[in-house]
Write a protein that binds this DNA or RNA. Sequence first.
DNA 1: CTAACGGTTCGAGCCGGATCGAACCGTCGA
DNA 2: TCGACGGTTCGATCCGGCTCGAACCGTTAG
Lengths: 226, 226
Amino acid sequence: MSIGPSITRIAAAIGDPVRAEMLAALMGGRALTATELANCAGITKQTGSSHLRKLLDAGLITVRSQGRHRYFGIANEDVAHLLEQMIGVADKTARLRTGPKEPALRKARVCYDHLAGEIAVDIYDRLLRNELICFVGESLTLTAEGARWMARFGIDVERLRSQRRALCRACLDWSERRNHLAGALGAAFLERLLERGWVRRERNSRLITIRPAGEIGLKRVLGSPR
Amino acid sequence: MSIGPSITRIAAAIGDPVRAEMLAALMGGRALTATELANCAGITKQTGSSHLRKLLDAGLITVRSQGRHRYFGIANEDVAHLLEQMIGVADKTARLRTGPKEPALRKARVCYDHLAGEIAVDIYDRLLRNELICFVGESLTLTAEGARWMARFGIDVERLRSQRRALCRACLDWSERRNHLAGALGAAFLERLLERGWVRRERNSRLITIRPAGEIGLKRVLGSPR
DNA sequence: CTAACGGTTCGAGCCGGATCGAACCGTCGA
DNA sequence: TCGACGGTTCGATCCGGCTCGAACCGTTAG
């Protein structure tokens, strides 16, 4: 009758150092192969394979077989969000003893498939202030003006709407404790920033760096932050 | 450099059947003693004591000593929210193999210190529709009319405002996948519902049942749902 | 003061699961 | 066709941590 066992399944799956490391690597948004994941966790591929099976059983990741490779990735947005929340709680309770670390990650990072961190919160604020997105009741929606804006920015909004996935979602940022943009639009927005060369993702990491062109460009299309 | 270890700390602390059961019991919102928690997890108090220390070390729970008793409770709203999210993910991945369980919990339950479930989402919608709460930018706020309404309902809003805790917060309901009211106001609202005898909490459970007076009363003060 | 009770600490036992070597399967390239 | 490579399975080993009995400390009640 109790809900204890159900959360044990999930938490125990995450709560192993090796598996946590694998999930952290996958939070970078890139699909990785079994060997890559084993390497970045510092174990042999046999052991890695067993861990990956556990993560699959728990429903936390998915696989896509491609030739002789198997690409693993975070299962869905809910799992990604759960992991972000967990980092938030961990960070908050650890701060007391260790002190803040990784300020660069606070500035900008990938959260599964969209942008997170200080920059992401700033962008979200400006989208809201310019009435390109707004709350209708409790759900975040793209305004008509917002749709035109996104089209000018190079995003095919109609294609996104046809996906089963929600177009806009507000996602609580653990480092900023404020919302940023998620959902299909959030993912497309990040993709476009990368294509334009406004931001760059670091190799094998969740870290995102903003390039000068991005600083200038964002200011031009969205106005100054604050 | 990686964030793996930090989430391991948290997830491993939750990912033990006994500790998960304890946390689930504490999600009922009541502070419980070490022996009570040991009993509801089905272990001896020595073992329980060790588990409780681990949960304390992880920062997931807090203690308050009172005479020869020690009362344990969920550390804060973030932890409660994390656990709810985890239930949501667990539920979603398990549904495929087990099927939905506990429909009563979906109807109404306690989420740490405020109301959750179908009823809570309904109430939230009606508060929003009547413009008693609204989004200002991204943060949920109580309107002037809402403050008067709450006062009539028997809630001392000024006292709540003076707390360090946020007055209104939107909390994503795992069973409904829509928002409900959290924060100091959410807690006070539930308290008032209990005082009025509109709802009742089941002993040793997160379950909340709506009494006839509550059905009628809520309809009178907030209008019909939908 | 003493007994009862709530809670923690210590120590020993035990079990689950993480780990890796070795063998095996399937795909790709030559 | 054969060898190289990515990945999984099996089996043996080993270690961490969960568990409880026993002893101990502090508080409360009589």
